[in-house]
């Protein structure tokens, strides 16, 4: 019997089809019919017209060839990027954009990590922030206006709701605006869970900076500041994308805070709406818990204090 099949092409084709369809059914078709493949987190919202336009551009430019959008449940990965990805976060992604190669960092938790201004400047020229980045520049997207009609059509195909006003507002927006809007919403349906990031770190007994005024620490702090902070806070911490660190205002309220508050803020980053010592954050300050050791953070704080004293001295003198 079995030998005959090699003389009967039609029979052979039918049997091969059946053989191919078994694995296909078990791992793909049947799961597709079940609810486990269609989860949705409650906080997840469909894309707005501007975000969807940005997502289309993300696809068009092939950002997924360098960037993934899933954080794996691995300890160091969660430390680096944030909470690991959940199945229900992607319900509106047609298709998913998880990618398969991390030439650049994962973007699953990029939303709200930085202020908008950071992204505009980074897309314009990634090498301004990271001299050795190989990410292409995307400033040219500014030149292209969005086509509200197109975006509207896309929203309709996907069945996402929108207001006419949202559509007409697109008239004044360009492709870079859209891309930034999309990037800022990625992965934001899950709370940032600052607590997880803090783990094992701010259980610090130190409330005072152990390196306060330490000359070597100030010098080390200067280098660290230039590397990690000056892009946002300015060369001399005078403020740029992020606020000035040498004035007497901390989180938009007059009156400076103590070193351990600095430490916590640098360690954990900030989050929109979070209240600390009666001061409300706007968000956009990234957490450095994964990137800097405790000593390094204290060194940076020593350096900020040093700059601040210098500034105060200047103010007094002149």
């Amino acid at each position: 019997m079995a030998g005959d099949i090699y003389k009967k092409p039609v029979m052979f084709a039918i049997v091969s089809t059946a053989v191919i369809l078994i694995g296909t059914a078990v791992t793909m078709f049947i799961p597709m019919m079940t609810a486990q493949m269609h989860p949705r987190i409650e906080a997840l919202k469909p894309f707005t017209p501007l975000q969807l336009a940005g997502r289309d551009i993300y696809q068009r430019e092939g950002c997924n060839n360098c960037h993934t959008q899933t954080v794996r449940p691995l300890r160091t990965e969660v430390m680096r990027y944030g909470e690991y990805s959940k199945a229900g976060e992607f319900a509106y992604d047609r298709p998913f954009l998880w990618g398969s190669k991390r030439t650049g960092p994962d973007l699953a938790r990029i939303g709200k990590k930085y202020p908008d201004a950071w992204h505009y400047r980074h897309f314009e020229n990634p090498r301004k922030f990271f001299q050795e980045s190989n990410m292409p520049a995307y400033g040219w997207l500014k030149e292209n206006n969005l086509d509200p009609g197109d975006v509207k059509g896309h929203m309709d195909v996907l069945g996402f709701s929108y207001s006419e006003e949202e559509i007409s507002l697109l008239q004044e927006r360009n492709e870079l605006d859209a891309l930034v809007a999309y990037v800022q919403v990625i992965g934001t349906s899950i709370p940032r869970r600052r607590a997880v990031r803090t783990q094992g770190k701010t259980t610090t007994a130190e409330i005072k900076n152990p390196l306060a005024g330490n000359q070597a620490a100030i010098i080390a702090g200067r280098d660290l500041f230039e590397e990690n902070c000056s892009d946002c806070h300015g060369e001399d911490a005078e403020g740029d994308i992020g606020p000035s660190l040498i004035d007497d205002v901390f989180l938009y309220v007059e009156g400076d805070l103590a070193d351990d508050d600095y430490f916590e803020l640098i360690n954990n980053g900030t989050e929109e709406g979070h209240v600390e010592e009666g001061r409300t954050m706007k968000g956009g300050m990234p957490a450095f818990v994964g990137d800097m050791s405790r000593e390094e953070m204290w060194s940076v704080i020593s350096y900020i204090r040093y700059l601040k004293n210098k500034q105060e001295g200047k103010n007094r003198d002149g």
């Binding site: 597709m32 989860p39 199945a87 047609r94 998913f96 059509g153």
Partner: peptide, 24 residues
């Protein structure tokens, strides 16, 4: 996929399901 114009379409599959179909 569902076409949205001549040069653009959106996958019939979404989220983790689209991932499963794609890598199958």
């Amino acid at each position: 996929s569902v076409p949205a114009g001549l040069f653009k379409s959106y996958s019939l599959f979404a989220g983790i399901n689209s991932a499963n179909v794609q890598w199958w």
